[in-house]
Amino acid sequence: MYWLLWDRTIKQPVERGKQMAKTRVAMELGMGSSLRRGDYTQAAVRALKDALWHNSLSMAEAFGFAKEAMIVDVEIAVQHPDQVDTATVKAVLPYGTGTVTVTHGGLDITKPTRNRAAGTSDKTIIAHAAVLVSFDMERQTSAPTTAGARV
């Protein structure tokens, strides 16, 4: 038997004696497009790269964790989620474990007829990417706390 506590600091139940488990430390946002090919995977990959390469995270170093301990969950939103190859999207991530989920969102814009070149798509695609970075972490119970961290 274990107790569930309502921890008002993280607004979710946590096990007694445990500070927290999977803890989200950062979110990165990006947008990508496929202007000519109508390729949802390409738009998703570009959105993910936009999210990742706008920031340089040094959370792992700050906490003294290995970079491989990062849990990187990617949420992609496009108008046709079934047409996104999640393996290709996931291959963009340089390290860490995690998931890629695709939901309905983003935006498709129909091209004016006169702008359609032969062999190109009839629509312009926008994809959004949200990268949720977490660690399965908790506060050290033995070590004394110092400035910057408050319980």
Partner: peptide, 20 residues
Amino acid sequence: DALHHSSLTLFRTLNLAHGD
């Protein structure tokens, strides 16, 4: 542009003070 491509969620999840 720099600010709105990310969010430092750890301040909320780890209950740290923004002012620091």
